[in-house]
Computed example of a mutant assay.
Amino acid sequence: MQCINVATNPNYKVIIGQDILEDVTHYADDCGSECIIVSDSNVANLYLPRVRAALTAAGMRVGEVVFTAGESCKTLTTAGKLLDAYAQFKLTRSGVVLALGGGVTGDLAGFTSAVWLRGVPVIQLPTTLLAMVDSAVGGKTGVDLPYGKNLIGAFHQPRKVLADINTLKTLPEEQHLDGVAEMLKAGITRDPELFAKLLSEPQSALSEEAIARSISIKAEIVVADEFERGERKLLNLGHTAGHAIEKVSNYRIRHGRAVAMGMVLVADAGWRHGITSEACRDAIIEALARCNLPLLSPYQIEELLPAMGYDKKRTGSKITLAVPKEIGQCELLELAVEELPAFWGVKGVQEL
């Protein structure tokens, strides 16, 4: 078992280990006397009964709300249903929201806990590799709009993150790969050793040590720039194009796969502009291929540009891209929005 301290204000711990859900009240000993569990229709069938039983046995008043699984349900409509459930449960500020599931669940539970009664605590119980190494840590919450992903949200740090790696045993291969893409991103951004480990042993992504290292990388960057005014934007490597790919596909393409395609696109564009070394670009492509992640977007850049115009890293008429230089080193590139087509290699200017 490993424990990582995230020194934001307030600070919190990320605990990684086995059999955490069976003894959730031991690790989440600051739940208070009431909580409501948020989960999706897939995860609820697997894990909600045991979590509810453990909490009830500890004498807590326990509620639950289950929504239909999938990114297409990460909407204001679903958020409203969660908030209605909190109201019916009469959740007070002494209560806690428990987010049991993957990234969509964490985003929805985090966002609704941020706005319910102007803020109640949330404890993240991630059950997917992607949620463990990325979305459950850092306090970003949100829902999607038809215009783009995560356009409505709040920074709301969790009270605690409890990552039970036993849940990864039931994870479908495609969801496992989503997490591997984010772990490779962490290596490209900050840690050549982690990147090399995943390149040589893709199966090591499921090890407690690799998961903990990926979380530590994100935690270090979040602590340095909690509200994404600078350095934290490095964690968006592959995400400007990746989120656009998700949006254009109507979320049929999963997040990790879209980010993998986005990393190839930005590494190749960076190489053409003299930012990314050829060795770095080739290593990224090789690593993604060896981990059975896709390399090529099914959409042309011209199809993705309108969605990129809604990127959250846009400020006024400028947008910031994370671009790899070498494995373990990325830089932030600020471009005028009208310069985006040329960066991606598209002739002419498109209004965004």
Rank of each mutant, 00 (worst) to 15 (best):
V266D: 09
R118S: 10
S297I: 07
E326V: 13
L129S: 03
P121I: 04
D144A: 04
A322L: 06
V122E: 01
H239R: 05
V38C: 04
E302Q: 15
K318E: 15
M1S: 14
S41A: 04
N250W: 13
L76D: 11
F155N: 02
M132T: 03
A224E: 14
S277P: 09
W344T: 07
V65R: 06
K149V: 07
T189E: 01
M308V: 14
G80D: 12
P202H: 06
I165K: 01
K74L: 05
V264Y: 04
G270V: 04
L305W: 06
A212D: 07
S135P: 01
P49E: 05
T127V: 05
A342Q: 13
D178G: 04
Q203P: 12
L321D: 08
P298W: 04
A53W: 13
D107S: 01
R190F: 12
F89T: 10
A44M: 10
V222F: 06
L265A: 15
L100R: 00
L235K: 03
E209I: 13
N150E: 09
V24N: 03
M132I: 10
G70P: 05
L168G: 02
D107M: 07
V14C: 10
A210Y: 08
T75P: 07
G148H: 09
F155A: 08
S135G: 09
Q329F: 13
R93Q: 00
L352D: 13
S277T: 14
E193G: 09
T78I: 07
P146I: 13
A244P: 06
A287V: 03
P202R: 13
E174M: 11
A163Q: 05
L151K: 08
P341I: 08
S216M: 11
Q2M: 13
A99L: 03
R61H: 12
A267N: 06
L48E: 08
C330R: 00
L46K: 14
G106F: 00
A322R: 04
L296C: 15
S214M: 09
K185N: 02
T189I: 15
L206V: 07
A79Q: 03
E174K: 14
T112V: 09
Y86A: 03
G345K: 08
K169E: 09
V97T: 02
T25N: 08
Q2D: 14
L321T: 03
N292W: 10
I188Y: 01
S94Y: 11
A269N: 03
Q175C: 08
I215L: 11
C291A: 15
E334D: 15
L91F: 05
T75R: 02
V143L: 09
A28W: 01
T170Q: 11
P306I: 02
G348H: 07
C31H: 05
M60W: 07
K325E: 11
A44V: 03
L151I: 07
H243C: 06
A85C: 12
I16P: 06
F343I: 11
K140M: 08
Q203D: 13
V264M: 12
A28S: 07
G101F: 00
V97N: 00
